[in-house]
Amino acid sequence: MPDASPQLEPFTQQTEPAALEELRARLRATRWPDAPEDAGWELGTDVAYLRELVAHWADTFDWPAQEAALARLPRFRVRLGGLGIHFVHARAVAATGPVLPLVLSHGWPDSFWRYSKVVPLLTDPGAHGADPADAFDVVVPDMPGYGYSDRPTGPSLDSIGVAGLWAELMDVLGYARFGAAGGDIGSHVSRYLALDHADRVVAVHRMDGGLPVFAGDPAELTPEERAWFKDVAGWGASEGAYAAVHRTKPQTSAVGLTDSPAGLAAWIVEKLRAWSDCDGDIERSFTKDEILTNVMLYWLTGTIGSSMRMYRANAAIPPEQLARRVEMPSGFSLFRGDIVRPPRAWLERTANVVSVNEPARGGHFAPFEEPELYAEELRAFFRPYRAAVTSSGGEAIRGA
């Protein structure tokens, strides 16, 4: 696609059998590390579990079936900012009122995969026991350097730059106004959509408040905020080594993770377990096939290094940008099993909060772990803002 063209192209992906054979050969040739007896997950990924997962990957996992399931989502590519951007664009079905366009932003270590279960619940609520009037047109892009979007050859985009791309994407699709939602890095992208494109965004929903940045007098903080700051610092000391690597020396780890599928799975699966609402049993939240589908999206596209580099880009965002308050109506769903959940006082300090809800189940990957709960969170939050939007445009891909 030429750089200047905003033309949308339907996207399908069919992996060559030779690529799968090469992957299986690598998996079967894995050189395994030793591990202390009964170490479990205490030192990182449980090697015993990983052996089990890799054996399933090599001998049982049916990637063509998973690829075909993902292909049922309406997927496209478009060139924006010199990069090919892959995205899902699923239109509302049988809506009985104004249709709200909604752009959903993912985080790490995931991609459009995060929202693959929730898309049909949002586009066709009537078919899933909800009110058809709550239907959305759903747009789920892969961020640059993730999934099937292009990897930047120069510096990675930060969350501010990605928000600008998403505003441009929604313009290309014909949506003058829309809602924004996300979690993890996608929460930051949604925040900057609300900050920098307030004329376009009607409201913003987030699953977290991000890590705390505060340059004022600590005495101004509430006791709950001070306790949270302490908890976040403790979490960073015990769980944040991955982020320090991503911010500082991502290319060192990228060599091994791009070369070894077992190593890549170890890097990702440990986070899926630690950040989900699974009480230590990862398969309470994800089946082996679901875990491996997420890992495959990194393996086949070679995007683990480029995804990690976004942390470095975000670490360079100026403090004055991080400190800006979101005046757009903001809603938060703080799922029980998520990490570093902020107190309401902090959310109100940083955003114009109109709702905070704490669902009883779900974690960092709630749209995948608990899609029905997450869909209801979005329906309830965005319901008052539907009248502000007229859904139009996007005819170039209707029915594609």
Rank of each mutant, 00 (worst) to 15 (best):
E225I: 02
L70T: 04
V353L: 13
H128G: 09
L83A: 05
S105W: 02
F368P: 07
D281I: 10
R226T: 15
A58T: 05
M328Y: 09
D289E: 11
P33Y: 11
A254W: 03
H89T: 08
G186D: 01
V140R: 00
D184S: 00
L193G: 05
V354F: 11
A90C: 04
I304A: 07
E369G: 07
P218N: 13
I397G: 03
Y115D: 04
G363W: 08
K249I: 13
R336S: 12
E369K: 04
A95K: 10
W113H: 06
L264T: 01
P384Y: 12
G305E: 13
G44L: 07
D158S: 04
A194M: 10
P125G: 02
I282M: 09
P109E: 05
T222E: 15
L193I: 01
E358D: 14
V103G: 05
S330D: 02
W32I: 07
L73A: 12
D338W: 01
R75Q: 15
D158I: 02
L297I: 02
A127R: 14
Q321H: 13
M310G: 00
A388S: 11
N352F: 09
S190L: 01
G147M: 05
A48F: 11
P141M: 02
L8V: 04
I268S: 01
A219H: 05
A375W: 10
V172Y: 06
C278P: 02
L20V: 01
I85L: 01
A39G: 13
D38G: 06
F229A: 08
F214P: 00
T390H: 06
N352S: 14
S156P: 09
R31Q: 15
G331Y: 08
P64R: 02
P120Y: 07
D150T: 04
P132M: 04
D38V: 09
A71P: 02
P2S: 14
L347D: 05
D158H: 00
P98G: 07
A241T: 03
D34P: 00
R26C: 12
D46R: 00
R79F: 11
E283A: 04
G256M: 11
T153S: 14
P120I: 09
D38Y: 11
V140W: 01
P261K: 04
R361E: 14
G186S: 00
S105K: 00
S333T: 10
G302T: 03
G399D: 15
R383F: 12
G81M: 08
A127S: 14
A387T: 14
R72C: 12
E377G: 05
P125F: 04
F286D: 02
T293Y: 07
T252G: 12
V88D: 06
V138H: 02
R72D: 12
L104N: 04
D277V: 07
P329Y: 12
S285I: 03
G174L: 11
I291T: 03
N314W: 06
F11T: 09
G263R: 02
L80D: 10
A254P: 01
S333D: 08
E358P: 15
P261T: 03
C278F: 11
A388D: 14
